[in-house]
Design a protein around this nucleic acid. Structure first.
Length: 306
DNA sequence: AAGACGAAAGTGGTTGA
DNA sequence: TCAACAACTTTCGTCTT
């Protein structure tokens, strides 16, 4: 990897770093997320601000393990190539060709297309390589177990991708993934649960913290606000008002409260849109937070100042 | 006019008999 | 397999700024 010289558009600092696990590039100074989408190893960074006109984007990528034959496909030559060989060697090549045709089972042929699809979507969402590889593995296992039958190929690809994102703590929501496919959330969720059950994949519930940074960045909140909201979440966790609740709602409400407390007020709608929940959910979580964390006074003080 | 708040009804998934 | 249930959404009316 060559070093990337990037400037943070928020604070101008060049001290940006790449969080591989999250697939985010953020500024060490102010926490701004420059890129929440990551590009292949083999490509150069896309300009954050493409006004500069020089596109560094490249097309295509070299070797990958996500090809249907793990990138090892080599055609074994036809008889014409074999004329110069000794009869014993020739027999061996015939045997090898027989193997090759045997490998071309319907499953392998299916994998060829579905893994291409996976690759396309992964690069669209800029899912980290590890997660993409894992999704490919999940899909392969699913295909070998015959779980694709009766389901659309895409939905299984999407389900595998989502499962792998969850496993790797990559903050991609079901919404984002379903936007990349011509499928709705419902269907992806269904197949996702199905393949998890069938393949015995254990998925931990996502932590609201996984989403905080990305949401905060989209809302242009300061790092201070982010840490406040993480504090709030921790406290909420301790008081056991988070169990069973959707992580996105919690993340959204914590951010909303934190923004209020630090005077960077955002409307409920703004936060709700970014987090992919409704205002009502934010309100409910928000109310619980105020109740349990004794924050009413603080909020009132802020209100009075205005 | 916009945002915050809350009530009521509906949806999809989980659970337990 | 069905009913109860919790979380969340949608919709809509009211209040506040």
């Amino acid at each position: 990897m060559q070093k990337q010289v990037k400037k943070c558009p928020e604070c101008g600092s060049t001290d940006v770093f790449w969080d591989r696990n999250r697939g985010e590039v953020s500024c060490r100074g102010c926490g701004f997320v420059l890129e929440d989408k990551r590009i292949d190893f083999t490509q150069e960074w896309r300009d954050f601000d493409s006004e500069s006109g020089e596109s560094k984007r490249r097309v295509g990528s070299p070797l990958t393990f996500t090809k249907h034959d793990k990138g090892l496909s080599t055609k074994i030559g036809k008889a014409g190539d074999l004329t110069k060989m000794k009869p014993s060697e020739r027999r061996m090549y015939y045997r090898m060709r027989k193997w090759q045709t045997r490998i071309s089972t319907p499953i392998e042929r299916n994998l060829k297309y579905s893994l291409a699809e996976l690759k396309r979507i992964s690069s669209f969402l800029d899912v980290p390589k590890i997660a993409e590889e894992d999704a490919a593995m999940i899909y392969r296992m699913a295909a070998e177990k015959g779980l694709v039958r009766g389901r659309s190929m895409e939905s299984v690809v999407a389900g595998a991708l989502y499962a792998s994102c969850r496993r790797h703590g990559v903050p991609r929501t079901l919404d984002e993934i379903s936007n990349a496919f011509p499928l709705d959330k419902k269907e992806i969720g269904k197949t996702y649960r199905f393949i998890c059950r069938e393949l015995r994949i254990r998925i931990l519930p996502t932590s609201p913290q996984d989403y905080i940074h990305r949401f905060a960045s989209e809302l242009k909140l300061s790092p201070k606000t982010v840490s406040t909201s993480i504090d709030i979440m921790k406290k909420a966790n301790e008081m056991e008002i988070t169990s069973g609740k959707g992580p996105m709602g919690i993340a959204a409400a914590s951010l909303y409260v934190a923004a209020l407390l630090s005077g960077e007020k955002k409307t409920q709608r703004e936060v709700a849109d970014v987090a992919g929940v409704t205002e009502v959910t934010i309100r409910n979580r928000y109310k619980e937070l105020l109740d349990k964390l004794k924050l009413e006074d603080k909020i009132k003080k802020i209100r009075d100042k205005e």
